[in-house]
Amino acid sequence: MAEPAANAHQGDDTTRRDFIFIAAGAASAVGVAATVWPFIDQMNPAADTRALSTTEVDLSAVVLGQQIKVMWQGKPVFVRHRTADEIGRAQRDDFATLKDPQSDAERLVQEDGAAGRPEWIVLQASCTHLGCVPTFVEGSSFGGWFCPCHGSDYDTSGRIRRGPAPANLPPAPYVYLNETSIRIG
């Protein structure tokens, strides 16, 4: 019914309406996106959560052969004071058949790239399979951590040796602040 009128006005009028239509559509699409984004982004870690991103650890309290679990960004981290025997096993196994080959020295490297000290190993305490916390088991098959959930076995350097986990326990980023303390993160 409106066709004859539309035909009569074909030209500038229609083009202008089309332009306004598309421009308004584009502007509202941008507007919707700009409005939705804050509602999505608010779920990301808040500033105070991110501020808890470093943890300082006093090493003097950890005696030889002992390990402590500290919380870093809400996640547990192992700080282990390794015995000479554990260090020996870890270094010897650099050449064993490894699922995720990495040498012990590489795993001790500090965040700034400086070499670590073999007696202190700092590892994120989440099994790389499904995130359970492994337990250090004296006399376990590889002398290190064992995950009770699905039976992954890690050695004294936290490398995966047996079980379903795909990768080594990731080292936590740390630096020595002085002789007896480190900062994680």
Binding site: I40, M43, N44, P45, A46, T49, Q73, G74, K75
Partner: peptide, 17 residues
Amino acid sequence: QVWIRGGGSIDQPTLSR
């Protein structure tokens, strides 16, 4: 994962949401 948890691990932000 971080977006859903609201942090590096399951914690207060996760419980609230």
